[in-house]
Design a binder for these strands. Structure first.
Lengths: 234, 234
DNA sequence: TGTACATCAGTGAACGCGCGTTCACTGATGTAC
DNA sequence: TGTACATCAGTGAACGCGCGTTCACTGATGTAC
């Protein structure tokens, strides 16, 4: 008994240090950018010697991977939380809650956002365990559309999708389980476009490409996401 | 006379070397990414000593700026060229030509695209002389819309734009001269959204976020841009 | 409960590397008279 | 046209810096009997 608690104390401290290292790395990310993230700087910041960090992360890339997974999960959690408190039948409200939650998280954590949605870090290949966290937000958006279709609340005149594009949609359906069978080809296309637009708008704002075009970013984003919601029939 | 030609020989050689340095830097960009672009590697690649590069570019950042300006201009030229050969009254055709030209250039030069539309390079502030080249593509898109409105070829049911957003549109109008006066608030909003979507789609494809959703990138892009064209009334 | 051993966290030195930038210099090319 | 001087391109050494990763080590903490 004694030994068990003692051991778990050690592992708890370990877990805390892992978190501290990641927090420090996140801070460095904000100052220097992903490419310049260095283990030595993290160690310095933590008051340890650089080799000590290797007890927690076997390499720089593993630390980067951990940050990416954390970023996806942080974003996913924020989105799920924000969406969950909206009345279930208010599909448009749920959709807008997701859009705003993504944007809010992104503006609060621009460098983590950039790590995930910006230029890929050179020489870094994202491992498979980033996939699941990466789809959390999309999952929520898809579910809203499915719910709306099920209750016949989706109002949109569907258009025909060319065969060349239609073929592509099978993997999407299968990825999201049985739900999307209920979405027609046209709605899946619209969904992918909406998803693209959401991140496109946020990236444009955060990466400075709307300077000179938009100054009231909040207002514009809200308005355009409303239009995108309408575009998918919500 | 002699001296003049002689001098221009020297300056011609200089100009050629500047181009060679930029070409080498572009190659390095493709291999290592923007953050890792180094003057020493460029010098090595050119077979000169690292300090010699300083005869041509006063610092690493100046080289970066030159690459950014070149990228915008290369993209701008490609787009202007592609758009110019379409029949003037085929507004939708002109629009699609622009979209495809941007995408083609981007897929052929992914790292230059990333340099401009990806995560901003940390500690690097783009100077004012990047602004004009940066707007060449947008200029073409705006002109197509203006032409279509002038000839009453634009078919779209305009929606009302909230005041909060409308206020924002004045700078856009003034930036593009007198033309956009003819575009209603709604059309300007749609235009900004279309512009956002164009780069959003290309970034998503290039940065790997469509893996698993879209495999026929050509086909999907064509289809979605057609829908965006319809969205702006073309 | 007490002791002998195993595991773990963190140290400190070292490896070999690359970077941006400066500076005094040599030698070639251009300019003015 | 010929010479004296000025400009320019490129060299090579040096500055001070930071990086990722390895390795043998000390000392503390946990485990088994």
């Amino acid at each position: 008994m004694q030994s068990v608690t003692a051991s778990s104390v050690r592992s708890r401290i370990r877990a805390e240090l892992v978190e501290e290292i990641k927090a420090s790395a996140r801070r460095q990310l904000a100052n220097e950018g992903a490419a310049a993230l260095s283990l030595r700087a993290v160690a310095r910041d933590m008051g340890m010697v650089s080799s000590a960090v290797y007890r927690y992360f076997p390499s720089r890339d593993d630390l980067l991977t951990a940050l990416i997974i954390d970023a996806y999960n942080a974003m996913g959690e924020r989105v799920e939380q924000a969406e969950s408190i909206v009345r279930r039948t208010d599909y448009r409200g749920r959709w807008m809650a997701v859009c705003h939650a993504v944007r809010r998280w992104a503006t609060e954590n621009p460098h983590e956002y950039g790590l995930v949605f910006g230029t890929p870090v050179p020489k870094y290949a994202a491992p498979a365990d980033t996939i699941t966290p990466a789809t959390r937000v999309t999952r929520v958006l898809v579910d809203i559309m499915i719910d709306a279709v099920r209750t016949a609340a989706l109002t949109v005149e569907t258009e025909t999708v060319p065969k060349a594009v239609r073929v592509d949609l099978a993997p999407v359906r299968s990825f999201f389980g049985e739900g999307p069978e209920q979405l027609g080809d046209d709605l899946i296309v619209r969904g992918i476009m909406a998803w693209t637009h959401l991140y496109g708008a946020i990236s444009f704002e955060l990466f400075g490409h709307r300077v000179g075009s938009v100054s009231n970013h909040d207002g514009f984003f809200d308005h355009e996401m409303r239009r995108i919601a309408a575009f998918v029939g919500l």
